[in-house]
């Protein structure tokens, strides 16, 4: 495992912990898209079914388990424990616009036509667009709490570090997975606009608000 990969995983974990701590401390999930969090729970569930079929390493098993737990706890806090604080009105992205094309594409473009491979491919495609309901919500309300922007920053950083990981692996092992790389590039592009706002506003101590 290379440095980009491990830092990518740490960023990913940190993003999920930041979100959980934000919701838990403030006892509120205001400004958080429940739909994006449900999509991430679906992403992990469909990708980590190999927990039952293959063993890679203790690290791999533990991290997959932790990611699944974080995703499900977040969804529970939003739609269960703190549902009264959930901004349903502004979380209005139409999920079928993502789920239908992603499902179709995972049947058409995969490495092999087996249930586990199709589900893995589905999870990769879905992850690349899962943040869109959250970004849509921010553009609709025109603002985001600073802690929410930290969450998005670490999530975006994870994607960027995974790109570096794939470049590294291609150079050293001649390994690459086209589906993962293309999806990874797509999702990193979604964060570019946000990264710009994060650096120019949030890091200078201002709240992220759109004109």
């Amino acid at each position: 495992m290379n440095i980009f990969r491990i830092l990518g995983d740490v960023s990913h974990l940190l993003a999920m912990i930041i979100l959980l701590v934000k919701i838990w401390r403030s006892k509120s999930c205001a400004g958080i898209s429940g739909k994006s969090q449900v999509l991430f729970a679906i992403v992990f569930t469909s990708r980590y079914l190999d927990l039952f079929t293959n063993f890679f390493s203790i690290y791999n098993t533990v991290m997959k388990f932790v990611f699944l737990m974080c995703a499900y706890i977040t969804v529970y806090l939003i739609y269960g424990k703190f549902r009264k604080t959930f901004d349903n009105e502004n979380d209005s992205f139409r999920l079928e616009f993502l789920l239908i094309p992603v499902t179709g594409l995972s049947f058409l473009e995969n490495q092999s036509f087996t249930p586990l491979e199709i589900l893995w491919t589905f999870s990769i495609y879905l992850e690349s667009v899962a943040i869109l309901p959250q970004l849509f919500m921010i553009s609709k309300t025109g603002e985001a709490e600073t802690i929410t922007t930290h969450y998005l920053f670490f999530l975006g950083l994870y994607h960027a570090l995974y790109l570096a990981n794939w470049i590294w692996r291609y150079q050293t092992e001649n390994y690459y997975d086209q589906i993962a790389v293309v999806s990874g590039v797509v999702q990193t592009i979604f964060y570019c606009d946000f990264f710009y706002l994060y650096v120019t506003k949030v890091l200078k101590g201002k709240k992220l608000s759109l004109p």
Binding site: R5, D9, H12, D50, N54, F56, S57, N60, M63, K64, F67, Q111, S112, W120, Y162, N165, Y175, D177, A180
Partner: peptide, 10 residues
Amino acid sequence: SPKESKHDEL
């Protein structure tokens, strides 16, 4: 193999 390798990533 590459097919195994990608499942090792998270």
